[in-house]
């Protein structure tokens, strides 16, 4: 069965897109092997202790911690996108792989299908 690589590239609370991307990933994990790659502003979705309720939004980012239970164990960030934004991996809510551009390309090439959410 096809594996699916989900790519999240948008900031978390500026629109519903990021939250709906995580919904799709959780659904996908019930059907097939899914991986998650966060790039660009998408890496900010993983910053821990976000309190979106202060701006009237749901704290959906807590859902990332549940991914392991859903069988999604391959989760990675593009390292330079974290560095560009001054984010250390210790500030992230979950353990992720840090990928250089060449490794990102490998992830893309090894996926059967890619779904983008920005």
């Amino acid at each position: 069965m096809s594996s699916i690589l989900f790519i999240f590239s948008g900031a978390p609370h500026t629109s519903l897109n990021a939250q709906e991307g995580l919904d799709a990933l959780l659904m996908g994990s019930a059907f097939t092997d899914c991986r998650l790659l966060l790039i660009g502003d998408g890496v900010t979705q993983l910053i821990k202790q976000q309190d979106a309720e202060q701006i009237g939004r749901k704290n959906y980012t807590q859902g990332f911690a549940a991914l392991k239970e859903y069988g999604v164990t391959s989760i990675a960030c593009r390292q330079s996108d974290l560095e560009d934004r001054g984010i250390a991996s210790s500030q992230l809510a979950i353990d992720v792989d840090l990928l250089d551009d060449s490794s990102c390309r490998d992830w893309l090439e090894s996926a059967d299908k890619v779904l983008n959410f920005r």
Binding site: F31, K113, L115
Partner: peptide, 8 residues
């Protein structure tokens, strides 16, 4: 599920 099904 329809999105995932179509993707697969």
């Amino acid at each position: 599920g329809q999105l995932v099904d179509a993707t697969i």
